[in-house]
C-alpha cells in the first residue's frame, strides 16, 4: 500500500487499506455487504488522524474547492445508464 502524506497516519491507513481491498474484491464485486461495516471503524480512525494533517497543511480548503468543481462529474458518473 502507498504511504500517507502524514507519516503519523501510516499505521492506521495501512490497516484500513488492507481491510478495504479485501472487502472490495471479496464482497463488493460480488454484490454483498455494500455498507462495508467491516472497515467502518478503521476508516474513522484513519480519517481522524488525516484530518489533523490536512488542516495543518491547509489542504482542506483546496479539497473543498476541487470537490465543488467536481459536482458535474458526480452527476454524470453516480447515475450511470442502466445496463
Amino acid at each position: 500500500m502507498s504511504a500517507s502524506l502524514a507519516p503519523e497516519c501510516n499505521d492506521v491507513k495501512e490497516r484500513y487499506d488492507t481491510c478495504f481491498l479485501k472487502w472490495y474484491s471479496e464482497k463488493y464485486l460480488r454484490g454483498s455487504d455494500r455498507e462495508n461495516q467491516d472497515c467502518a471503524e478503521l476508516f474513522k480512525n484513519y480519517q481522524s488522524c488525516l484530518k489533523v494533517a490536512l488542516n495543518e497543511r491547509g489542504i482542506n480548503k483546496l479539497v473543498e474547492e476541487a470537490r465543488e468543481d467536481n459536482k458535474d462529474n458526480d452527476v454524470r458518473l453516480l447515475s450511470p445508464p442502466k445496463k
Binding site: L5, C9, K13, F20, Y28, F43, L77, L78, S79, P80
Partner: peptide, 15 residues
C-alpha cells in the same frame, strides 16, 4: 503519498 478522503456506495445505483 495517496490518501483516501471519503468513500461511499450509492444506495440506488451501487456505485
Amino acid at each position: 503519498a495517496v490518501d483516501t478522503l471519503s468513500r461511499s456506495v450509492d444506495p440506488a445505483t451501487g456505485v
